[in-house]
């Protein structure tokens, strides 16, 4: 089966600095892929390229759309790319303030994509927003509060609801749990695992936290200095790392 998204030889440089060099990866529906690595290893740049927000200097990204056609991301026009980003893809950002409209109520945040698709019935939008807030465990009476009044964990859950409301097929997550305390992290991870399983989502999650990768992902790609140094099944890579850098990374984790 052709993968939902496949990248070949993705390269991006910022002047003399290499952010990504020759990255290959595939992802299929229902699969969670974790990209791990230390800060500055090119994880976020890779994610931006996968999201179509950043054009790679070299390499190609192919996406299989809902009609089953495999298309190169670079060949899709800006209008369709934006429409794909609104319907087929989700992007959960590290900083919720970038992924949410902070001045707009939670209900409006969840409903925005629906209204963008042409939904013009207030009652339906409201009902859908309530349903999704319930699914991400946000109390119904908070629907009219802006995210500025939400805690960090709630903001991330609201971001997830806002992205999943149009039933996307691919969700990209950039360090969704960083900056949250461990109990809130655990709840969020439970939620992501449950929803991705229920909805058969393909998820690419960027994290520097190996525990997050182990809990969520099926496969893992380890990045260092813009290159993927090791890739494989999560348990395999974390329990029996082959690459020297992965061994270092795994051994650096503090045991609780």
């Amino acid at each position: 089966m052709t993968p939902l998204l496949s990248a070949h030889g993705l390269t991006k440089t910022y002047g003399p600095r290499i952010a990504c060099a020759g990255v290959d990866l595939d992802i299929t529906e229902g699969e969670v892929l974790a990209i791990v690595g230390e800060s500055g290893s090119g994880k976020s740049t890779l994610l931006s390229m996968l999201a179509g927000e950043l054009a790679p200097d070299a390499g190609e990204i192919r996406y299989r759309d809902r009609e089953g056609r495999v298309r190169a991301l670079g060949a899709i026009g800006p209008a369709e790319l934006r429409s794909l980003a609104r319907t087929d893809w989700g992007f959960v950002r590290q900083d919720a303030a970038q992924g949410l409209r902070m001045a707009v109520s939670a209900g409006g945040n969840v409903g925005e994509r629906l209204m963008g698709l042409g939904e013009r019935h207030y009652g339906n939008i409201r009902a859908c927003a309530l349903d999704w807030l319930d699914r991400v465990e946000i109390a119904a009476d908070r629907i009219d509060d802006p995210p500025t009044r939400f805690s960090g964990g709630m903001r991330q859950r609201l971001q997830i609801a806002r992205n999943l409301v149009t039933a996307p097929r691919l969700v990209l997550m950039d360090e969704p749990t960083s900056g949250l305390d461990v109990s809130v992290q655990a709840r969020l991870l439970d939620l992501i695992r449950r929803l991705s399983g229920e909805l058969g989502l393909a998820v690419v999650i960027v994290t520097h936290d190996l525990a997050v990768a182990r809990l969520l992902s099926h496969r893992i790609a380890v990045m260092r200095a813009g290159r993927v140094v090791e890739t494989g099944l999560t348990d395999q890579v974390l329990d029996d790392p082959a690459d020297a850098y992965t061994q270092l990374l795994v051994s650096s984790v503090l045991a609780a």
Binding site: V104, S105, G108, G111, E112, M115, G116, Y122, D144
Partner: peptide, 12 residues
């Protein structure tokens, strides 16, 4: 779609 978000906010 964003324009309707404003109207949605009004109603809510």
């Amino acid at each position: 779609g964003l324009m309707h978000v404003k109207l949605y906010e009004d109603i809510s």
